[in-house]
Amino acid sequence: MAKSNKPIIWGTFAAGGTLTAFVTPVLMVLTLLAATGHLPEMLGYDKLHAFAAGWFGKLVIFVILFLSLWSQAHRLRCTFYDFGARADTLVAITVYALAGVGSIATLVYLARL
């Protein structure tokens, strides 16, 4: 049996899982504050735009969105299987395509800033 190509996806899953474990809760706290009317200073248009327009900001945003998308897409694939959906190839193509579209969209939006 040939060696699997799973590592290419699993690499992003492991990196993305670690990243989401470290930063997603605090990001949620920040947007929750915004959602309850206590907008954090940094999430105002001017400050956030200035951050996202710089190369460092772009890099941070891209890494967070790219790894979050691919890690959660991969886990979603496994979750489908665990819930009994056996059309694994179809599920895999769909979730990875979504992650791919999201990654390209991230690049496009970052380029427009």
Binding site: T24, Y45, A52, I61, Q72, R75, T79, D82, Y109
Partner: peptide
């Protein structure tokens, strides 16, 4: 643990939409 991906995944899409609106201008971001 596995279904956390549904919530984190949707949240990531929200962040992506926020980025899109940010790139479109102040009114859209508002």
């Amino acid at each position: 643990r596995e279904v956390t991906c549904i919530f984190i995944g949707i949240y990531t899409v929200i962040l992506l939409v926020g980025l899109a609106r940010l790139s479109e201008g102040p009114a859209q971001y508002e």
